[in-house]
């Protein structure tokens, strides 16, 4: 089942003025329920504009956005319900923390959903646990926490609303290697536990290949490809051609191919590279 579907969606900034700019150009795509999809594309490719369509933050200039089969801009749909159903976490989400305590910050979303106190309490504690935030931190000020902890508190605040679909814009940007891995591992565990559809926007190809099952590549406002991670990264040369990066390990394999030894075009993790090399030596 498709949880999100876009039909011929275009979005123009400053439409009808001399500054008109088409950020999303006639895009049709389908996201399946329970998919863990990485979204990549260089700056200006339209990926940020695209993801803001998924929860109705912006309205397409033309085309239709369907969430769970319903056009979110039709009269019978309340757009506020869509925002609860599709959680969107922006880059540097910790900048949006504002409450006195971690607990209150995580509770802010559920409170606005009109839930009762017991349910809010249950959700806050569960979301904190899911994001690896220890109980004793709940009464602390979010501003006393480390960068990685703050980021996880901000994520927990969205998870406490139990969205069906979670869109994460660069959730690991600016963190150190341990912080990155912790945030992304928690997101992955969350996905496995609840089956929530996850859309992960990242510039880090290493992270995308490690965590996403499918990848959607944006280029010049269009979907360049949307396929299983293996199939997408087997098109390494094309990906490099549209100004994107591939993991360093893939660059090593490409270089080796230029030298005359081909280990295959599906290598983008160290483990797989090692396995191929050892097989070759056998």
């Amino acid at each position: 089942m498709n949880v999100i579907e876009l039909k011929n969606v275009s979005y123009k900034y400053s439409a009808g003025t001399p500054f008109e700019h088409t950020a999303v150009d006639n895009v049709s795509l389908e996201i399946k329920k329970g998919e863990f999809c990485g979204i990549i594309g260089h700056t200006g490719s339209g990926k940020s504009t695209l993801i803001q369509h998924f929860n109705g933050l912006i309205k397409p200039t033309s085309g239709e956005v369907l969430v769970e089969g319903k056009n979110i801009w039709s009269k019978e749909v309340n757009i506020k319900d869509i925002r609860f159903k599709v959680g969107l976490v922006f880059q540097y989400s910790e900048h949006q923390l504002f409450e006195e305590t971690v607990y209150k910050d995580i509770a802010y979303g559920p409170k606005n959903m009109g839930l009762d106190k017991d349910e809010i309490d249950k959700r806050v504690r569960q979301a904190a646990e899911d994001m690896g935030i220890r109980e004793e931190l709940l009464e602390r000020s979010p501003f006393d926490l480390s960068g990685g902890q703050k980021r996880r508190v901000a994520l927990a605040g969205v998870m406490a609303m139990k969205p069906e679909i979670l869109i994460l814009d660069e959730p690991a940007a600016g963190l150190d290697p341990v912080g990155r891995e912790k945030v992304l591992t928690k997101i992955k565990e969350y996905h496995e536990k609840y089956g929530t559809t996850i859309l992960l926007v990242s510039h880090s190809m290493e992270d995308i290949v490690k965590y996403s099952k499918t990848v959607l590549v944006m280029n010049k406002g269009k979907v360049f490809c949307h396929d299983d991670t293996d199939n997408v990264f087997s098109r390494q040369e094309e990906i490099l051609g549209i100004g994107l990066d591939v993991p360093q390990i893939t660059k090593i394999v490409i270089k080796l191919r230029e030298l005359g030894i081909d280990l295959g075009n599906d290598i983008y993790t160290i483990d797989r590279a090692k396995e191929r090399i050892l097989n070759y030596l056998r």
Partner: peptide
């Protein structure tokens, strides 16, 4: 990258 590819090339 370059050193690594060259080493692998010699090895293989």
């Amino acid at each position: 990258v370059d050193e690594c590819a060259e080493f692998l090339f010699r090895l293989l």
